[in-house]
Simulated scan of single mutants.
Amino acid sequence: MTAAIESPHADRRRSLAWALLVAAAVWLVPANLLPIMTLDTLGREQAGTIADGVLRLLRSGMPGLALVVFTASLLIPILKILVLAVIYWRTPAHPRPRGAIRAYRLVYWIGRWSMLDVFVVALLAGLMRFGVLARAVPEPGITAFALAVVLTMLSAHAFVTSQLWEPDHGSGANP
């Protein structure tokens, strides 16, 4: 009886988690296609996407830093969305609830570090104000990236992990 009472609430939370995750995936597209920042050094402006930044780091002889930026800014946001989608898709009654909860906790933990890119751009924009010599200007891509990160974190927060162990009440089987 208790599971039947909790089920509608859990179903609403799961729907909310899905909606937030889909919105995050949608915002990730412009986050990767639009420029995140324009650097203006001595009158020469260079707007760039995250991928442009990775390529510039590679060309500048900094493959280690390029790998860090690629992993943190491109790979991890996509993997977070994919991992959460798999967990949500397989819920309720996940076939491997222990593995799913470990993956969920990892994504949840990584979420707090995902805003690092946004903070770096904000810091550069605030600190690089040297008149005509150099300045950094945030662009729309960083806003889209921040929205994708926040929506992913909200999605993970909205998900009810106890559903990983609960039977599917909507399948027509007797509860």
Rank of each mutant, 00 (worst) to 15 (best):
R102F: 10
F145I: 03
A85F: 07
L154T: 00
L79A: 15
L116Q: 00
K80Y: 06
T2G: 11
T41F: 09
A51L: 13
G61P: 02
R12E: 08
T41L: 11
R96I: 06
T71Y: 12
L79T: 11
L154D: 02
F130C: 07
R13A: 09
E6P: 00
R12I: 12
R135K: 12
I5F: 10
A23S: 14
L28R: 05
A19D: 07
H9L: 11
G126F: 02
S60G: 12
P95D: 05
R102S: 08
Q46S: 13
T49H: 05
L151N: 04
L39I: 14
R102M: 07
V118I: 04
K80V: 03
W27H: 11
R129D: 01
W89H: 15
V132L: 02
I36K: 04
P95K: 13
L127Y: 08
A156Q: 01
S7C: 06
A47M: 11
R56T: 05
G61F: 04
I50D: 00
S15Q: 12
H94Y: 07
L106G: 02
L42D: 06
L39Y: 14
A146R: 01
E45N: 15
F70L: 13
A19K: 04
M128R: 05
A158Y: 08
A24S: 15
V121E: 00
G64P: 05
G172H: 14
A158W: 09
A125T: 04
P77K: 03
T143G: 11
A31K: 02
V137F: 10
F159Y: 07
M128H: 07
H9G: 10
V121K: 00
T161K: 11
F70C: 06
M153N: 09
M153T: 08
Y104T: 00
A173H: 12
M37P: 03
V160A: 15
K80I: 03
P92R: 08
I5K: 13
W27F: 13
N32C: 11
S162G: 07
D168W: 10
G43L: 07
T49V: 05
A66L: 05
L20M: 08
A3G: 01
L21M: 06
A72G: 07
E139T: 02
R129V: 02
V86A: 14
P95E: 06
I50M: 14
A4V: 07
L106Q: 03
N174A: 11
P92I: 13
A23I: 02
Q46L: 14
M128I: 04
A158H: 08
L33S: 10
H94N: 09
H94P: 03
H9E: 08
A103F: 01
A47C: 09
L79G: 06
A122W: 03
A31L: 05
A100T: 03
L65I: 12
D117T: 03
L164D: 01
P92S: 13
E139Q: 07
T38F: 13
A4S: 11
Y108C: 03
R59M: 11
R12S: 06
V150D: 00
L116W: 10
L106M: 09
T143V: 15
V68W: 15
V69A: 10
L28Y: 13
A10Q: 11
G131N: 04
K80N: 14
W113M: 11
S60N: 09
R129K: 14
S171E: 05
R44Y: 06
R98I: 05
L74S: 03
S73Q: 10
G64E: 10
G48W: 05
P175M: 10
T49M: 07
L39W: 14
T2H: 13
D52Y: 08
S155F: 00
